[in-house]
Design a protein around this nucleic acid. Structure first.
Lengths: 103, 103
DNA sequence: TTTAGTAGTCATGATTTTCTGACTTATTGC
DNA sequence: GCAATAAGTCAGAAAATCATGACTACTAAA
């Protein structure tokens, strides 16, 4: 069996990991919105039209797993969850800027 | 109908286009090899193990369509075809370097 | 003229990703 | 207590991406 993890370990292209992690259908958009403000699941669902709970949920978990986003439980007033860019996430902004210029 | 082209035109994330174009299974690897030397179809097929004609052929065409590679017919000795990085392609190298560092 | 290499295309099938709708758990507001 | 909102999970269906094998067209060598 060739699992996803295995494939990532066998990468020959060093940038491929990062690339792959932003390659999901909604991940670049999620990332862009995260640059603007902390994310919340239900508003994301409303903001990104055409998206759906399942895919968004998996995307957020994966972005969290690779430490681009961090999940924070806000224990105030209307108890909720926020996703924020990590330092690693922030360091990717410059790369995106480059991509936009070249686009 | 929502075609691929339409979706690309509707992009809200400006870097998404570039990201998408490098998101195919073999594209990052193709790109990396193109940085090293001009590409030839049949050697690519041998170099990238696990790949196949069909996917490679489509990937090359798509990389050409977005002007990252250019297809050149070499009219010499053993008449063949080469794919070279364009200037736009070369300018992406720096972005990849950044990705590698952050990886 | 048969075989081999290069550069593919095409139809079909398999695999992977994404989408849909139903359901869950916890907290608030009325 | 009852409904609503938030943040999900799960199974199954649909769609997108990839892989396979057969086939084409051209060149060149044996």
């Amino acid at each position: 069996m060739t699992t996803k993890k295995e494939i990532i370990e066998n990468e020959t292209c060093p940038a491929q990991g990062l690339l792959k992690l932003l390659s999901g259908k909604w991940k670049p958009e999620i990332f862009r919105l995260a640059v603007e403000a902390p994310l919340r699941f239900s508003s994301l669902l409303r903001q990104i039209e055409g998206s759906n709970k399942q895919t968004l949920s998996v995307a957020l978990r994966e972005l969290e797993e690779v430490s681009l986003l961090e999940k924070i439980v806000i224990k105030q007033k209307p108890l909720h969850i926020e996703y924020n860019l990590t330092e690693k996430g922030k360091s990717l902004i410059a790369v995106f800027k480059q991509l936009e210029i070249l686009g």
